[in-house]
């Protein structure tokens, strides 16, 4: 018990015990940040990571399947693309507003909205990756007697990987950022301390939470870069 109010309540700094920085509401108070890490920052960070991973994984599954269908049936690529783009252009807050009457102030509402934003990015990335597989490679693969499934698994998907990974990177970074708005719907994720700090201006809380969101975006992006490197060794092969 540190004597300073946890983030859930209005922030009333206890001037009696607090540091100079906290008393003066400095831009960023390291001591307070460390003190409050376990209660104010860590739980929302974990929630945020879950929120993002769930959204990107579900978004990936849906968009990937849609892209495979659109790749096989080219006439579907247009309509699917339009739907996905429409979902992407909706302002996040408006989408929450639209969903709340149906799914309530729940994590489900948040995830539905987040998934919607990932769809168009991943869909286009998968489709662009498949479309960019060189024609001569496909022709020689078919000419050697690969069947359609072998062509997809051995040739088309591996060669689409760089594009798919870059789509996932953009979708992930975007979701980390959009997920902060989820605080308007549920008291969860890094948006929650930011929202509270905005209503009672205490700099360290919202700068700390904001910085964590940025850091999280960098880390997840970096992880995807590493995954991409491991999966595509031929991209780094040099003479």
């Amino acid at each position: 018990m540190s004597g300073i109010a946890p983030a859930g309540d209005p922030v009333i700094p206890d001037y009696g015990q607090a540091s100079e920085c906290v008393i003066n509401n400095g831009p960023f108070c390291g001591d307070w940040f460390v003190d409050q890490w376990a209660t104010v920052f860590w739980p929302p960070l974990v929630d945020h990571i879950y929120m993002v991973i769930i959204a990107v994984v579900i978004g990936f599954v849906i968009a990937f399947a849609a892209a495979l269908i659109a790749y096989r049936k080219r006439w579907l690529a247009g309509p699917i693309g339009i739907v996905a783009t429409f979902l992407y252009t909706l302002p996040p807050l408006a989408l929450f507003q639209l969903l709340v009457p149906f799914t309530g102030l729940t994590l489900l509402t948040v995830e539905i909205a987040l998934v919607c934003f990932t769809l168009v990015i991943i869909f286009q990335a998968v489709l662009a990756g498949l479309a960019a597989v060189p024609e001569d490679v496909k022709r020689s693969a078919i000419g050697m007697g690969l069947n359609q499934r072998q062509l997809m698994v051995k040739v088309e998907l591996p060669l689409a990987l760089p594009s798919i990974i870059s789509g996932l990177r953009i979708a992930t970074v975007l979701t980390v950022s959009v997920a902060t708005i989820a605080a308007f719907v549920v008291d969860s994720g890094l948006g929650s301390p930011i929202l509270k700090a905005v209503s009672s201006p205490f700099n360290t809380q919202f700068i700390g939470a904001g910085a964590l969101a940025v850091l999280l975006a960098f880390v997840l992006d970096g992880l995807l870069v590493i995954v991409g490197r491991v999966l595509t060794p031929w991209m780094r092969a040099r003479v």
Binding site: D136, R139, A141, G145, P158, L159, T232
Partner: peptide
């Protein structure tokens, strides 16, 4: 039928993500 016919094309059509050994071993 195709698996019993050797096929070589312009630009080689090699799989860029396969090594030389893997390319030769496809069929």
């Amino acid at each position: 039928l195709r698996r019993t016919i050797g096929y070589a094309i312009q630009q080689s059509g090699l799989f860029p993500h396969y090594t030389v050994a893997e390319n030769i071993a496809i069929v």
